[in-house]
Design a protein around this nucleic acid. Sequence first.
DNA 1: CTGAAAGCGCTTACAG
DNA 2: CTGAAAGCGCTTACAG
Lengths: 349, 349
Amino acid sequence: MWRARGDAPLAQKIKLSTIADSLGVSTATVSLALRDSPLVADATRERIKEHARAIGYIYNRRAASLRTSRSGIVGVCVHDVMNPFYAEILRSIELELDRSRQTFLLCNHYDQVEKQRNFLDTLLQLGADGVIMSAAIGTPADDIRMVEDNGLPAVLIARSVEGVDVPSFRGDDAYGIGLATNHLISLGHHRIAMIGGTDQTSTGRDRYQGYVAAMEKAGLPVLPSMRLAGPRTKQAGFEAAQTFLAMKDKPTAAVCWNDLVAIGLMNGIARAGLAPGVDVSVTGYDDLEEAAIATPALTTVWNGQREVGRRAARVLLERLNGVEVERGQHLIQPELHVRQSTTKPRERV
Amino acid sequence: MWRARGDAPLAQKIKLSTIADSLGVSTATVSLALRDSPLVADATRERIKEHARAIGYIYNRRAASLRTSRSGIVGVCVHDVMNPFYAEILRSIELELDRSRQTFLLCNHYDQVEKQRNFLDTLLQLGADGVIMSAAIGTPADDIRMVEDNGLPAVLIARSVEGVDVPSFRGDDAYGIGLATNHLISLGHHRIAMIGGTDQTSTGRDRYQGYVAAMEKAGLPVLPSMRLAGPRTKQAGFEAAQTFLAMKDKPTAAVCWNDLVAIGLMNGIARAGLAPGVDVSVTGYDDLEEAAIATPALTTVWNGQREVGRRAARVLLERLNGVEVERGQHLIQPELHVRQSTTKPRERV
DNA sequence: CTGAAAGCGCTTACAG
DNA sequence: CTGAAAGCGCTTACAG
């Protein structure tokens, strides 16, 4: 248990040598004892640990880390924690990292390369043990090589970066969006719009290509007017509803960039007096916890967030322990989860 | 700009003395120069900074911190980052902290006192400069006193802890929930249920009391059967819809613990074939970004997340700079935002 | 099983 | 304006 130490804060900083002096042993012995080294006799160890606890000793990790050059810190850098997609990934990273008692430092880069660079710099300065990142749009391969060259192993998630030879975990986007598109096609939809996403990320390009490929394979026309790039948030999806409903080709269905856009779009469609899932079919992507309780429940593509986080964290921990790991892309196979937001087409009013 | 340094990683760790030797000056001069001390001649400083950049020098913060006992790290500990309420607070904390170049360490305690304790311990070990926390349910005052006694200044947000003398920022919950309750009463509702929340937090008690006080002031009966404690998430709100709709006193309105519960509840009500905002009026709490785009748009109480985060961060920074700050509770005044989810009562079917 | 001593890479008085 | 030297609090060979 913790003990408040009297009234005078910081009266006298307690350190290893304080304990050593009190007990008449050397600091080496205290250091070893506190870390449960078998080199120390049981009785000595217990006496030391007991005393340390009693006087409220606080281990100084900076000093230890300076000496050992291991910090126990792992950095995690994503676009935005507030986005449930990343939040779900983080949750599983947290779980793995906790298990090996690593402290984790978090950063939102909001797709600003400079902000990400500052963070990586901080990690380097703190002597972090590794970093897991979903690289900001426009991240040069050099930024990642640089941290690796300085002894900070990196693992990529959700997005990959060309020309970088580190392990990378993400869903198979082209395949996944194909599942959603094919599902709509098989229900009888011909005019299917794609809402949201950007060509500036690998994910964005892959998803759009997946949609295009599925349409072409079914012999359906791919109209540029049916592509509404941009939206990636619920708010943006909500606002996109107007544009979507005004499209001159009157699409009967929308393949959305992600669940947030899909839910926003459905809200916008409902606000316009139409019934999402009846008048317009909508698919999401990610299968966030929220997808199942949306109204109507959202048909979406499970993107393996948990899996991505878990595997990325494990591979990083392996690298830290000197295990040789497989470099390059690891694709997680997405799955289609059909719910109520997709039905047979009905002519749009 | 960064430079990758050759092929051999860690070939030779570059440190202050490396620079000093190369340039024929002392490490003291290099140290001063890199931190822009006016003690160093301009020419010397530029020469040093230029060289440091050229050879890819990385500042070792652990070493510096060991010497100065300032780490530039601030800890932030909340229930769960995935909850948009905390995410919005974090956003504004991040903004303030970035400005003064503090690195921030994040922790979800999930209301486990032990997990929070581990985090505080880590902060102490790392020599963090301060901590901002929304204390876990059941946090003993001693846990907070202990960190303060060890030189780690704390600032509380969202929840307060009895018997602790540190600055604390939160919304005025009793007042805020009163706004929502009075609004429903003024629309003509008499049977108003309260959904969600727990008596184990100061916030929970205050909100329930605020509801009770408003009901009593209006001469309306407070029925225990109208109180459904527990739910705090969208999922739980969704599930609570069934219980709510089956309540024997047939409430015509629900005052919800927060926006998440309210949105979940509305989804559940819609799923049951009723129209939220028409058949049942619903109020939220927090005014998350999402509230405005919910269907129907949610009437809710703005809880000042941004304000809480901003002020908490500023006060902490002031404390770090040795400024004496006002201890005790700082209440932020909530505001009612009326939207479409509340209307005049209609007899429940 | 335990101790004396060097060293991790900085910063800070103190001289000059 | 610059340098020599001590010290922050650990851990790790190296002796014994």
